[in-house]
Design a protein around this nucleic acid. Structure first.
Lengths: 234, 234
DNA sequence: CGGACACTTGAATAGGGTCAAATTCTGTGG
DNA sequence: CCACAGAATTTGACCCTATTCAAGTGTCCG
């Protein structure tokens, strides 16, 4: 249960808004929100930065993580399109936000966001969705075996399936291709395992014919419902 | 990492609002909120109940938990005075809410809560505080040793200490008496340990002179800062 | 082709889990 | 106040899952 050093893959440093240092820059200011793009592996903010803005993901995936002083890392949340991040009770951010994929976000000044009722409603409604997801993730971290965790994670990567209102297989096609867009280390830090256990667990799932590993970051799930049953949730 | 059967201590069933079956009943209807009291160990709601109301804790402590089909339980959140619970994205609650102590709550009809801007702001602001706390708890569950978890839990039971703005010891008195108001099983289900490990860890802390165990549910922390260092957070 | 990096695999280890038994609390009734 | 029963907690012995440590094996890209 000891140290998991933060990913060896060095994250890119934040690109200051407006400075077109490459592929990412502020594209346009909106009345309230400011559009920004981030390349994969770029930091949106870091622990200790002044918590001035709230972010909404338009496209792509962002991870939020925290570090312990000795280097152990926990990815506390994965934020997909529609999700919100940058919520902080303190005057500074209490963790890091890093783009997992190239992504587009809109950010709002914290105080300004509270002015617009419309905007505030949208953001808070979304926070509630994520709040419930965090509760569910606590169960994953707290009470599930390595296999159940991997299965839960895989299900999370298949939009529209596995939820309360899962429609079941579309016709006879019960397969899914998924891009993990995370390294083994990141999956480990999200599921609270080690990189080796993630690798072994995936291999075991492959051997059992549950998934095929097309590329390290791309899986094909043969039978979604079977994975769903492996989550331990039902 | 296997089963942790739900607490043997049988929870009391919910008392229907308005029916004064004993010490708990609706005391008064307010314009928006409805005041209620719950005795310790009473359920406020259960998984699958229609998610019609949002609750605010006025006094006492409520725990939210989820069960896996095989009986494993995870207490996903502890809600103290000021906290909010009953947030659900679905038409039904996705977990259980049980009073740990006798407590007073105010509940609001979900749709009505959205009408009052004032109320909505207060509730959502509070949800954000808890949202950040869940992030922190993910680190506890994911990356901490048994001792670090217990230390984190103990710190959580000492109001005003250990946070970003911890004022440090008040004068020369750096001790604290705390009521856990949870059984070992509940602490285990919250920290994602077993009842035996909780007991052993507490005993170890006692042997090291970090805490004294006055009663099973009442501890005395000799040196708060020392416990704080044991959390692994700093 | 070769170096760097990510991933996989194997063997040994340890931290916490499991199972079982003893001890302490707590509440009740005499 | 004391004795008793049932529950909660503590403790002990052993075990298992996931971690740790240590090599490999791709794979990408200059």
């Amino acid at each position: 249960m000891k140290s998991d050093l933060a990913s060896q893959r060095e994250p890119l440093s934040t690109c200051p808004a407006g400075r077109a240092g490459g592929t990412f820059f502020v594209t346009r200011d909106e009345p309230l929100g400011r559009r920004q793009r981030f390349a994969a592996r770029m930091h949106v903010f870091s622990e200790g930065d002044p918590a001035q803005r709230i972010y909404e993901v338009v496209e792509g995936r962002v991870m939020l993580y925290k570090l312990l002083p000795d280097g152990r890392r926990q990815i506390v949340e994965l934020v997909d399109a529609g999700g919100v991040f940058g919520i902080s009770t303190l005057p500074i951010y209490d963790g890091f936000a890093e783009a997992l994929t190239a992504c587009r976000v809109v950010s709002y000044d914290r105080s300004a966001a509270g002015q617009s009722i419309e905007l505030w409603r949208r953001l808070t409604a979304r926070v509630q969705v994520q709040f419930c997801a965090l509760h569910a993730h606590a169960v994953v971290l707290g009470r599930k075996s390595a296999t159940e965790r991997m299965a839960s994670f895989v299900m999370q990567c298949i939009p529209g399936r596995g939820g309360y209102d899962c429609p079941g297989p579309r016709g006879t096609d019960n397969s899914a291709r998924i891009r993990l867009c995370m390294t083994r280390q990141e999956i480990a830090d999200y599921l609270c395992l080690t990189i080796e256990t993630v690798s072994r667990t995936l291999t075991a799932l492959r051997r059992r014919g549950v998934v095929s590993i097309e590329k390290p970051e791309q899986l094909c799930v043969k039978d979604v419902c079977r994975v769903c049953r492996l989550t331990g949730d039902r």
